[in-house]
Design a protein around this nucleic acid. Structure first.
Lengths: 253, 253
DNA sequence: ATGTCTTTGTGAACGCGTGCACAAAGATGG
DNA sequence: CCATCTTTGTGCACGCGTTCACAAAGACAT
């Protein structure tokens, strides 16, 4: 998972476990798809399959929200969509600012998934004066000097940081000081924030490294057991070392 | 955290817990920074602070790798950088393909964090014939027809999917069939893959929804207890409803 | 050599999350 | 109204991950 929770150790928020909260958006997506196909009801088994989870887990997750199902029938799709939306706070409008309009920031601004669920890009902010006024995704970029004013005028409580790592903590501090209490961080840094502020991070590099670990392990197992050579054979230059073999100390920067 | 593990239920890979693997890149980043500042050794306490984790957790994590510390002194930075790099498989080259060169795909291609740790963008692939040959981040985009050939010629085992949701499963199937065994999925879909293939997903929309949940909870608590009005007051139009109040059924699409 | 001080490595307890398996609930048909 | 069948909701047990707390290990000074 490309995400990590910081702070809020594992406090059940009003009885709903954190792990369940993280799955609600998944259920909601599957349910929305069913709703668009005008499917009236769905069983836990079907919905679980669509969301890629265990059906018992799904039922237990829903049980935290209340008893919204009908035994022998399943769940009412529309009703469940509404209940989950409400639980996640998606029935209200969430203005969001994106700070750092580089390649990634621009991509995020253009991302459709933002607007679709109650999230509205209230402003794009960048430190480069040359960017100021230039429209990205139809929204003019504003300079960092305006940050505090933008946050306050728009009542923004969610900020997205897409700056270089070096600027992230500073931007974070300013966002928090201006009233932001939830931060989605794309910069490869550990942000420190005061109590009561939620930070979630998305880190491409970490995800790739985790994949590489498992990939290496697979390659090692293949080499160890005599089976399944095809993948190992296809790889050309992969420096066929054992998983534990001591290799010359060539380290990436 | 914008990531979720699919498959591989919780199998310790050669004794190293999954949770530990997910933190190793964090430690590595902190250690690399220390290394650049020529710091020779570091204590578990200092390093833990830099990585944003508990020091006991860090020590236990390192204990899975072996006994690399010196009691009374701490850990040798250079040695630890090397050991973790090796454990994560970063001492070898990992060619990666990015499929779907839209806004996000292009941003990923331009992302510096790729190249820095042994990951090399071997090819960019897009279904749009008009994109073919056009250079993005200095690499010419190739058409989807070439996918299988590219994978095999370059020995690619890690694929990044940045296509629209509708195309993701199909692209995934082709990647897997061609030999890819690790996938980083940015498309908002649940991918189904055969055993032995790892999928990690990065989903902006899910992260925002989780933040919204906690944000809503915070607002509710504030309203409930009579304290800390300043944040609630700053918010202008935020539809000041209780956390449980029944509201008119206005749902986002 | 001996004592002191720092810091690691880990045994043990605890809590969260997961999944099984089943009883309860309701729909449906006769 | 009763029997049957489907599907929910949940009690329970298990395992992973986290954290505490401390003994063991080594550095360093005397």
């Amino acid at each position: 998972m490309a995400t990590g929770r910081t702070h809020r150790p594992a406090t059940r928020s009003r009885g709903i476990p954190e792990a369940t909260v993280a799955r609600l958006p998944l259920y909601l997506r599957a349910l929305t798809a069913l709703s668009e196909r005008s499917v009236p009801t769905v069983s836990s088994e079907e919905l679980a399959a669509a969301a890629g989870v265990n059906s018992a887990k799904l039922r237990k997750d829903f049980s935290y929200l209340g008893s919204y199902g009908t035994r022998g029938v399943g769940y009412d799709v529309e009703y469940l969509v509404y209940q989950i939306s409400r639980e996640l706070g998606l029935t209200q409008d969430w203005p969001v600012v994106i700070v750092g309009i580089g390649n990634l920031g621009a991509a995020l601004a253009n991302y459709g998934g933002f607007a679709s669920r109650g999230f509205r890009v209230a402003a794009l902010i960048d430190a480069d004066p040359a960017m100021a006024g230039k429209p990205v995704a139809g929204i003019p970029v504003q300079h960092t000097d305006e940050l505090e004013k933008i946050i306050q005028d728009n009542g923004v409580s969610i900020g997205v940081i897409a700056t270089p790592a070096g600027a992230a903590q500073q931007v974070c501090d300013r966002l928090v000081a201006a009233g932001v209490t939830s931060i989605l961080n794309f910069a490869p840094t550990v942000l420190s924030v005061p109590d009561g502020v939620d930070v979630r991070k998305v880190d491409l590099s970490i995800e790739l490294q985790i994949l590489a670990f498992h990939e290496q392990r697979k390659a090692g197992e293949e080499a160890g057991a005599g089976t399944a050579q095809q993948a190992a054979a296809a790889r050309s230059d992969a420096a066929d070392q054992g998983p534990d073999g001591d290799v010359p100390a060539v380290m990436p920067a």
